[in-house]
């Protein structure tokens, strides 16, 4: 019984981190209909900011998180203006943005590899290797803190989307871009802001990831499959769905890892992606795709 509780707790703690990693991807898809394949490489950039801030100046990753988020959000603004804005009216928008984000991921990987080398890194504040013990169950402090901070950020995002004056048009654009535009929403500005927020969330997630996982520039290819499985299971564009999927799949992966073998744990996400696309392509909360 203790094993089951232990495994579930480890899965839940990681689920919080995955939720934040996927939330930005989901937001950007919801508003802009862009599957941002470069999202994990942007998370990687956030992780490097936290890593070097800790290594060079001893700054805690949790403290550098807002800085990483702000730097990445600024990067998001630049990327949107330089790369995506001109594609907005393109007849081949979907195809172009997939190719563009793929190219961006390659460029990010190359840049990070050149500057920081391909050595595995992990930020190691004291709590990253410490744990709370409750009877026979241990809760790793690093994963717990990362999970709690993730949920805090996602809750703030949800409140912002639900109640702020700028949240309304973002939600509206997600649900019906044309209608939002016709009701006076500057959808280009909303797209810019959403992309910046989404990439900013990648930066925040990166700061947390830096002490939860070891990372190196090309690891983003593994992450994109994991994040896509969350976004697809949750329903493309549904942030709530992504969060729920993150908890479901990470708990499932934890059990697979414990009972079947650690090497099979990551495969859980791959299989889930395949099965969901086959059985229920709209995921838990997405719109049913139209038949051609």
């Amino acid at each position: 019984m203790a094993d089951i509780v232990q495994t579930a707790i480890l899965g839940l703690a990681l689920g919080g981190v995955y939720a934040l990693m996927g939330a930005g991807l989901s937001l950007v898809f919801g508003v802009m209909r862009i599957v941002n394949l470069a999202h994990p490489s942007l998370i990687m950039a956030g992780a490097y900011i936290a890593y070097w801030a800790f290594r060079l100046a001893g700054v805690d990753p949790l403290l550098i998180l807002p800085v990483a988020a702000a730097i990445l959000a600024g990067t998001g603004v630049l990327l949107y203006k330089l790369v995506f804005e001109r594609e907005a009216r393109s007849a081949k928008y979907s195809e172009m943005t997939v190719l563009l984000t793929f190219a961006l991921a390659m460029v990010m990987e190359g840049l990070l590899g050149t500057v920081f080398t391909n050595t595995q890194r992990v930020t190691s504040p004291d709590y990253a290797t410490d744990a709370f013990f409750i009877a026979d169950v241990f809760i790793p402090k690093g994963q717990l803190y990362a999970g709690m901070v993730s949920l805090g950020i996602i809750s703030a995002l949800a409140l912002f989307l639900k109640h702020s004056r700028f949240g309304y048009p973002i939600r509206a654009t997600t649900q019906n871009r044309e209608a939002a535009e016709l009701l006076g929403v500057n959808v280009n500005l909303v797209s810019l802001a959403s992309f910046a927020i989404g990439v900013g969330l990648a930066g925040a997630a990166g700061a947390l990831v830096s002490f939860v996982f070891s990372f190196f520039p090309s690891k983003h290819w593994e992450w994109i499959v994991i994040l896509m499985s969350l976004v697809v299971l949750g329903g493309m564009g549904s942030i709530f769905g992504t969060v729920l999927a993150a908890f479901i799949l990470s708990v499932l992966a934890a059990f697979v890892g414990f009972y079947v073998g650690a090497v099979w744990s990551t495969l859980t996400f791959f299989v889930a992606l395949f099965v969901v696309l086959l059985v229920r392509p709209q995921g838990l909360f997405g719109e049913k795709p139209e038949l051609a």
């Binding site: 509206a172 649900q175 016709l182 009701l183 006076g184």
Partner: peptide
């Protein structure tokens, strides 16, 4: 729209996951 011209496109163009009241609020977004 700000000049005073409004279009209601085919299929109503509502925000399906928003409530009726929220849809009305979006109508007065500007």
């Amino acid at each position: 729209l700000r000049r005073g011209i409004c279009l209601v496109p085919q299929e109503r163009a509502l925000f399906p996951a928003m409530t009726v009241r929220e849809n009305l609020r979006m109508g007065g977004y500007s």
